[in-house]
């Protein structure tokens, strides 16, 4: 059974906040199914009792002292924003029929 259906690709697109076009969803479906088949071969490798790795080099977290450093200048923080107002970033309305 194929791992991905086109509907699923679109649903994942929603989760990833990408408004995929129909054509993109179609080509992604076949490409991703090819990759999924290859990835599924990982299940032939025994890993019982093996711990998962997040960082390849084992390290304890460094905990920094609670000392403040100068903040970004507000103009610098806002300089690249697509839209600002009163020193704040403008977001389009948050609620609305989807």
């Amino acid at each position: 059974m194929a791992t991905f259906t086109k509907e699923q690709v679109k649903r994942i697109g929603d989760l990833a906040a990408i408004a995929l076009t129909d054509d993109e969803a179609t080509s992604l479906e076949s490409e991703l199914n090819g990759l999924a088949e290859s990835i599924d071969e990982l299940n032939t490798i025994p890993t019982d009792g093996v711990e998962p790795t997040t960082n390849p080099v084992f390290l304890e977290a460094y905990l920094r002292p609670d000392i403040a450093a100068p903040p970004l200048d507000r103009d610098a923080a806002l300089a690249s924003a697509p839209a600002t107002e009163n020193g704040m970033f403008v977001a389009p309305r948050i609620l609305g029929e989807e």
């Binding site: 905990l63 609670d66 903040p71 704040m88």
Partner: peptide, 30 residues
């Protein structure tokens, strides 16, 4: 290491990390 105070002027208590700038990385406060 940005200091935070309730009621501060908007967007004046930021570092590249708290603004989520590309390349910035979190470091845990002890």
């Amino acid at each position: 290491p940005a200091h935070y105070e309730f009621g501060g002027e908007p967007n004046t208590e930021l570092t590249p990390v708290s603004l989520g700038l590309p390349g910035s990385l979190p470091v845990i406060n002890r």
